[in-house]
């Protein structure tokens, strides 16, 4: 969104913002490579590589529960 954005947004403007951001996200999560097919939205593999999620301490959880 730029400073010259229209004051009154139409439904089509909103759709365009969402569409553009969805595409930007796909480009971002695919490392900038062109993506021909839209990947599944829940696919977080690209993020999981970069951010190693904390492993659930199963033994501790069981103990606490």
């Amino acid at each position: 969104m730029s400073d010259t954005a229209p004051e009154d947004w139409t439904d089509n403007d909103i759709k365009e913002i969402i569409r553009a951001q969805r595409e930007a996200r796909i480009r971002f999560t695919s490392g900038g490579k062109a993506v021909k097919e839209k990947p599944k939205a829940a696919d977080t593999s690209a993020l999981e590589e970069e951010f190693a999620l904390p492993k659930a301490p199963v033994a501790n959880i069981r103990r606490k529960l």
Binding site: I18, Q21, A24, R25, A41, A42, T44
Partner: peptide
């Protein structure tokens, strides 16, 4: 722009 981006990307990330 980054706020809009973060909201939309979050919603896409956790769509399911």
């Amino acid at each position: 722009e980054n706020l809009l981006r973060t909201v939309i990307w979050y919603l896409e990330e956790f769509k399911n």
